[in-house]
Amino acid sequence: MAQNQQLSFNAQDQININSSQSSALSAINTSLQRANELSIQSGNPLADSNIIQQELDGISEQVNAIADEVLGQNNFLSGLDASDPAATQTILENASTLINQNNASLGASSNALSSQVLSYEAAIVNTSASRSRIEDTDFAKQTSEQQKTEVLLQSAILTKQNEEERKGLLFNQLV
């Protein structure tokens, strides 16, 4: 039972880790969407490409910091260029696909772990119920044995008293 409990705790811990990573991936996805908007704006000849490039650089740094922590890739997003919107959108699309695949994998893993947790918890409940029934049976058997012993003891005492009374009557008749 303790082993199933520990397995359940471990699986729940991994689910929590997956959830944290999934949240980080969602933050990356939000940043990628903003970068995509900026790349579209950079195609406008009236847009200030320097300001757009500064924001793309900031997004790239932010995404890379999160990707380093979650995916172990410190250069996950590079080559964002406000002067080449088509290339930037291709980079963003590839990055988004990779993030979505990782997020799907984490979701599948969490679902499998949730199923395992339910199995472990069912095993804990079933083991506890079985142990309780065994203990109840043992208690009932012990109680029955104790009552039998008490009845035999009382019977022996009564028999001894009857014997003593007969001896006393016999003694009185002899005297």
Rank of each mutant, 00 (worst) to 15 (best):
A2G: 05
Q3V: 13
Q3I: 12
Q6P: 00
S8L: 05
F9W: 13
F9S: 11
F9K: 08
A11I: 05
Q14R: 05
Q14M: 07
Q14E: 07
N16S: 11
N18D: 13
N18F: 08
Q21L: 13
S22T: 13
S23M: 10
S23W: 02
S23Y: 00
A24I: 04
L25K: 03
A27R: 09
S31I: 03
R34H: 05
N36G: 00
L38M: 08
S39E: 10
S39H: 11
Q41I: 07
Q41A: 15
Q41N: 05
S42Q: 06
P45N: 10
P45T: 12
P45Q: 10
A47L: 10
N50L: 07
I52L: 13
Q53P: 06
Q54H: 08
E55G: 02
L56Y: 02
G58A: 14
I59C: 05
Q62G: 04
E69Y: 10
V70F: 05
L71M: 14
Q73L: 05
F76G: 00
F76W: 00
L77Y: 05
G79W: 02
G79D: 07
L80R: 01
L80W: 01
L80Y: 03
D81R: 00
D81E: 08
S83K: 00
S83Y: 04
D84E: 14
A86Q: 15
A86V: 15
A86T: 14
T88S: 13
T88F: 10
T90D: 14
T90I: 15
I91E: 02
I91C: 03
L92H: 03
E93D: 11
A95S: 07
S96H: 04
T97K: 12
I99W: 03
N100H: 06
N103F: 06
N103G: 11
A104W: 04
L106D: 03
G107N: 15
G107L: 08
S110N: 03
A112D: 04
L113C: 04
L113V: 08
L113I: 05
S114Q: 06
S114V: 01
Q116M: 11
L118W: 04
E121I: 07
A123R: 09
V125P: 02
V125G: 04
S128E: 12
A129Q: 12
A129D: 09
I134V: 10
I134T: 07
T137M: 10
D138W: 10
D138M: 14
F139P: 00
F139W: 10
A140N: 03
Q142D: 05
Q142L: 10
Q142P: 00
T143W: 13
Q146M: 07
Q146I: 14
K148D: 13
K148F: 14
T149R: 09
E150W: 03
L152E: 15
L153N: 12
S155F: 09
T159N: 11
K160I: 15
K160A: 15
K160V: 15
Q161P: 02
E163T: 03
E165Y: 14
E165N: 01
F171K: 09
N172C: 06
N172A: 15
